[in-house]
Write a protein that binds this DNA or RNA. Structure first.
Lengths: 314, 314
DNA sequence: TCGTTGCGATAAGATCCTCTTATGAAAAAC
DNA sequence: GTTTTTCATAAGAGGATCTTATCGCAACGA
């Protein structure tokens, strides 16, 4: 049964339908002898006669009739493969496994998932939220299709594209609202609250204050989310830095003040990365556009809120 | 999608399983470039990349993963075709449509169907009981596989084999039991009860009495079954002829007498016919053996009963 | 950083398969 | 009895598929 071919199945089906070699051959677009040979070969392959050649008509044998519905079913399945392929040709479809770092996920995802669902119906999005090193590892193992992280990643096996750059802002207790913005070095002397180890944002914040990773600030509090940090500031425990993106969400229900730094403002660049070999490259570029659009929407929203709250703009 | 081949599907499956071209090729018994080419061709056919070629590993794309289970299902179905063929190779299997004339069916079928069911489990027997011309027509149209009729049929398109020959016996009212057996011509003068037009047995009986079909006997009664004929005789309405085969069943509950004719006894030959082109020929020969065995069992039963009832033997 | 190694892609030629046209044989139709 | 219809067979052309040899690329090790 190893040498059965699709052609033979199609020819079988045509012959069963027409009951006539010449007409069936015509329907298949081949000559009558070609069909005779293929049917014969198929019968040899199967080891049973499939058709009864009468003087005036060709009929399925009882055995052939057992084959016919199964063969039709197989041909249908194969045609369906074609349908699926055709349907997915230019459309982004199937599973998309996307990783996002925790300091981006809660702000970006609601908007992004909404847009993806609207723009790419039939796309099955899986989200993984964890820290950069694990995302990169899973990406390289093929367990993720892409990741949204802070650049640069600098992995030879990965392609990275920039999505946007955002500044960090200082979050202080509401009472500090009017005070001058401290110099980076001055922040070192304040009670600076930071995320726990492993978050790239922690390193970025430390780096801005010119702090070495081996000489941590006086009193660190290892929070697991920006939300916790802001709540801590609100409780008067200290100050913290958060990315602009998080301002709208995190300061909404807290009486804290937000202050921009003087130039050069601290910032981070968020980008998308994927395996250089990924065949999804072109689709991922499409996705990156959707991400930018989602960010844009967030920014507008943020700006609107900033105006209402009288938060210093840039 | 018209040029997909089974080979490609098998190669796809192997590559998906091994995640490695060389090993997959080895598993398929071909060289690595051959596999590369077929996969590439398949991808072109589909219009999508199915595998992601990484530096160190080969993985299914998300799209490929949608294909994989379907392809496995198709391969499974094809293998099943092989299984079915192998299982049916030497065994008589599937549907067997058998036609039987009404003057044989009620006596032969109980035993025959029992034997067929016992000897060929999995054989799906369909029985059609009607008169010879219709059986022959349905046979030639391919709506029956074989028919059991009185020979000869003399159709060029049909093969016929003899199953057995049986005599006709005279059935008279029980009161006539001791009377001498009449000459054939004498029967003509008796009130001879016959089957309705169309039954071959009617013609055979008439022929025995040297009656032309255009000069029917004085008082015909067109019965639709031998059973009816015997009941009529039992009621004293006349006499009839029935084949030996029917004696045991039909005279069991009637007080009629059965008499053999003097040589040459009237008789008929029952045989099996099928299309000369039927691929079932060899299986039908097997079937014919089962029929003979069934007839033999009937005869023995009949002989036993004849001995008990003191019916004249031959 | 530079060979080395492993892997898949590509190239060129041999082989096998499948198709076509031409023809044969058998049965049916006229 | 001749013609027609139909499927099978034969022989050769063309195409598909395989093999061996080789390339290019990336990862790995010294």
């Amino acid at each position: 049964m190893k040498n059965l071919t699709f052609k033979q199945l199609r020819y079988f089906e045509a012959l069963a339908r027409h009951g006539h070699f010449r007409r069936a051959a015509e329907a298949c677009g081949i000559s009558q002898p070609a069909l005779s040979m293929q049917i014969k070969e198929m019968e040899e392959e199967v080891g049973m006669e499939l058709f009864e050649r009468g003087a005036r008509q060709v009929r399925l044998t009882g055995f052939g009739e057992e084959f016919a519905p199964r063969i039709r079913e197989i041909l249908r399945s194969v045609d369906e493969l074609g349908d699926i392929a055709r349907a997915s040709r230019d459309r982004l479809v199937g599973r998309l496994r996307i990783g996002v770092i925790p300091t981006v996920a809660p702000y970006l995802l609601p908007s992004l998932l909404g847009n993806l669902g609207r723009l790419h119906k039939g796309l099955d999005v899986h989200v993984r939220e964890t820290q950069t090193p694990r995302l990169i590892q899973e990406l390289e193992e093929g367990r993720l299709d892409t990741a949204i992280v802070a650049l640069p990643v600098s992995e030879a096996a990965l392609t990275e594209i920039t999505l946007f750059t955002e500044n960090f802002v200082l979050v202080r207790p509401g009472a500090d609202a009017g005070k001058p913005v401290p110099e980076p070095e001055a922040v070192r002397e304040m009670r600076l609250l930071l995320l726990e180890e492993g978050h790239c944002f922690r390193e970025q914040a430390l780096s801005f204050c010119n702090m070495d990773m081996r000489t941590p600030p006086r009193d660190v509090l290892d929070a697991s989310s920006l939300s916790t940090l802001v709540q801590m500031v609100d409780a008067g425990i200290g100050v913290t830095l958060i990315p602009e993106m998080a301002v709208a969400v995190e300061t909404r229900s807290a009486s804290v003040s937000v202050a921009r730094f003087k130039d050069p403002e601290p910032s981070r660049t968020i980008g998308m990365v994927w395996r250089r070999t990924s065949p999804l490259a072109s689709q991922l570029l499409q996705i990156s556009e959707v991400v930018r659009r989602s960010i844009g929407a967030l920014r507008d929203q943020h700006d609107g809120q900033r105006a209402r709250d009288n938060v210093p703009g840039q």
